[in-house]
Structures are given as structure tokens and as C-alpha cells.
Design a binder for these strands. Structure first.
Lengths: 225, 225
DNA sequence: AATTCAGCTAACAATTTTGTAAGATACACA
DNA sequence: TGTGTATCTTACAAAATTGTTAGCTGAATT
């Protein structure tokens, strides 16, 4: 099931960041900047969930929450600029379903959205799980890789390696950790087997036109910067 | 990273339910029922996160939160029996990191725990992603299956099939949907190929001593009830 | 600059995975 | 109950994955 999410947020940078990430996570995202009549856009688009900033020009988020509640039980997730406890209580009393304070990480936002959707709709066909970094999308459902619209099939070893490295992007992952993650302690594999598997993974990236995704840190391990 | 979580909750059923689920989600769980000295157990175990019920015998959750705060900055997630806004504000003022009201879904609890851990510890090595149903655990990271402590390796097709069926447990998934999920439209595969792959998956369950996990609904598809 | 060692690459064989064919069952409906 | 169709099972060959070996490359250290 494809959920449609409406974002009401006046800070353009945040608005665009949210929309971009929602799309990335396979939601249908749309934003409104018609702050004098949010309800109009809501009724026109009928989203499955509303992300509502509290600080808005003209009327505030609480006002629009009330307006929406008059016509719909759609789940509403409030976004607050400051970590204000009164806001949080207010938001909940208003009929808000959850509350997130800026600054927030996209992972937390997505987790909250998924949790709220799961609670509000009886849906079992969960969102596609993905891991994204620099335009490279790892699909956890199918174990495939998407690089500028090309779908690349990964073997199980390749998938496991990339999964670990992408989860830890920005940090060096030691060869030892990778070895222990892919092969049980009991099972003895040659140290070079890891190198070969990294090599195979890199070749797939190269064949898709991506040069240096996985970097070697000699003596330390590998990193996706 | 393996996080240790301490649960302080007087309702035995809830306490055990939480502990069981924490373990399932790869946390190290321990509970205390020493309500006259929660701090003692806290100091002995040094957990990474505390789940603290507000209504407790002898002293309440707020008291223990203060006691813990005197010695530690460990993240504390409050559990409230009633959806009481004052409790929520109080909890936050006390130095609580998050707040969840009963009844809560395990998914939400886990999401909140993960979000809090992510905020509190600079860890990028996220929790293992799993899908669980009736004691059968599908590890999304490694593409393996865990059936009463046995680890069973799945091939890529077997993993994809099981993943879809487990995501949709309780619902019938049509053969057509499975076919389209596993094989691109362009790629023509025999209709029986799906049957064979289901058969192979079932054999792995049987070899682990599980009889009827995937049921056939003739003319409709397959279902994990 | 020479040396050393960590990591890279290519080639090979063993193993596993995969799709298909062919015949066997079992269910649904007349 | 009989018939047709959907699903199951087994066996087989093709294809992909995997671990190892052996030799190569390139960075770090002296």
C-alpha cells in the first residue's frame, strides 16, 4: 500500500528535506504552502497522514489540527520547533497522534510515521525497507541495489557486506568485524575470502558506473564515506 | 552493539511481555521486582536504557528517576498506566527521555527505544532488523531463519517469498503477486516455478520440525495464518 | 629506494541455487 | 462420483555463487 503524506511546514529547507526523504522511503509526498487555507489542500488531496508544524504563518498548527479534526480522523503528527513540553501536551490534547521535536533525524521521523500508520490503518503490507546513501539505494526486501534507475542483483554475501557497510557509513568497519559477521566463528575461511567478496561487490558498482563507493583504509578496514 | 535494557514494571504480564519482546528484538533484557531498591539493581547491571513504569509499589517511577539521575545520565523511557498529560510533563521535567502510554503496541515501544538509543548513544550500528511470527524469526540482515534456536540458511528466492508472506501474515497473498514480486514482468517464468520454490521453502520448515507454516488457499494463493 | 606486508585480481573447482519438465495428488464443481 | 484444474513432487541440467590458490599491486616504513 502506498501512503500519501501531507507536509505543512513553513521552513522551505526542512519542507523539501522531508518531502525528498518521504519519497525516498516510498511514500507519496506532497506539501502545501497555502498557509491561509491548509484545509482546502487537505480536502483536495485526502492524505493518509499529516505532518503539521506548530509554528506557521497566519494560523498555527493547533488551529489547523482542530480544523482537520472537524472533518477527519486522519493521523496527525506534530512537528515542534522547540522542545516545549506545553506544546507536546497541547498537541496530544488537540487530537495529535504523535509529536516530534526539531531537530529530528529522518530515521526517527520515518519510524514515527510508520508506527502511526500501522496503528491507524490495519495494514500489513509494510513499507519497503531501504537503506540509502548518496543516491545508492539498497532494497532490503529484495536484496537488490538501485543505482540511477539501474537495478543490480546482489548475491547473498554481497548483500550482507553492503548492508553492514551502508548501516555504518561514515565509520570504518574492520575486516575482522566483516569476517565475523559473514562467517560463523566455527567456520574457518581464508582471510582473503573477504577481500575477494569486497572485490566482487566493487565490480558491481563499477559496472553501474560508480567508481569509489567503498574505500579501503589500510590496516583499519573499509568505509563508505 | 548489544544494548542492555532494564524494565521496572510491577504488572507481571506486561513485564514479561516486554522482556520477551526486547529479547526478540535482540536487546539484552532484564527486569527488577525489587521495588524497595531499584537503584541497587540499576547500579549492579548498568543498563543502557531504563523502561520505568510510573505506578509502582512503595516509591513511584518519578522517585526512582530522580535517584537514577543523581548517579547517571542513562536514557529513561517512562511508561504510564493512564494517558495522563500531567504525568507526561512531569516525566519530561524529571529528566525522562521519552514517554509511552499504556496500552502501547510493541512496535511503538521498540521504535521509541531505538530512537532514544540512537539519540543517546552515537551508534550507527543499528539494531538487527527482524520479522517475527509465532516463534519463527526472519533475520532481515542476514537472510536467515531462526526456528527454536536452529539457524536455517535461506536462498534468495526462499527469503523473498518468506519475507512477503510474513509481512502479510494473516492475509492471503496471491500466486500472481508472488510471481510478480520475485520475477520481473519481462522475465517469463513457468507458473510452476513458484510452486517449486514454495515447496523448497516448506521443506526447510519441515526439516526444522515445523509442519504447517505456509498454507495453500486453492484458487486464491498462500497464507501464513 | 628497498623492503615488507596488506590488500587486490584472476582463474579454477566445488557447491548451491534455480528453472523446467513430467508425472502424481488433491481439491472443487458438476 | 467423476472430471478438470490447481497444486505438489521429484529429478535433472543450466546457471550462479562461493572459497581457495597463486601471483600481483601499491602503500607504509625503514
Amino acid at each position: 500500500m502506498q501512503f500519501k503524506i501531507m507536509t505543512v511546514e513553513d521552513d522551505r529547507a526542512i519542507r523539501e528535506m522531508i518531502a525528498e526523504n518521504l519519497t525516498k522511503w516510498q511514500f507519496e509526498a506532497f506539501t502545501t504552502t497555502n498557509f491561509s487555507n491548509v484545509l482546502e489542500d487537505f480536502l483536495a488531496e485526502k492524505p493518509h497522514l499529516v505532518l503539521l508544524d506548530i509554528n506557521l504563518p497566519i494560523y498555527d498548527g493547533f488551529y489547523w489540527c482542530q480544523k482537520i479534526r472537524e472533518v477527519s480522523k486522519v493521523p496527525i503528527l506534530f512537528i515542534s520547533s522547540r522542545n516545549n513540553n506545553m506544546d507536546m501536551v497541547m498537541a496530544m490534547n488537540m487530537g495529535g497522534d504523535d509529536f516530534i521535536s526539531k531537530p529530528f533525524s529522518i530515521e526517527v521521523l520515518i519510524a514515527k510515521i510508520n508506527a502511526t500508520l500501522r496503528r491507524s490503518y490495519d495494514y500489513v503490507d509494510l513499507q519497503t525497507d531501504i537503506l540509502e546513501h548518496q543516491g545508492i539505494i539498497l532494497n532490503l526486501d529484495s536484496g537488490t541495489l538501485k543505482i540511477n534507475e539501474q537495478i543490480i542483483d546482489l548475491s547473498k554475501n554481497e548483500y550482507k557486506l553492503l548492508h553492514i557497510l551502508m548501516k555504518n557509513h561514515g565509520k570504518i568497519v574492520s575486516r575482522d568485524k566483516l569476517l565475523r559477521s559473514l562467517w560463523d566463528d566455527e567456520r574457518f575461511v581464508d582471510d582473503n575470502t573477504l577481500t575477494v567478496n569486497i572485490n566482487r561487490l566493487r565490480k558491481k558498482f563499477e559496472s553501474a558506473g560508480v567508481g569509489h563507493f567503498i574505500e579501503t583504509k589500510i590496516g583499519q578496514g573499509y568505509i563508505i564515506p
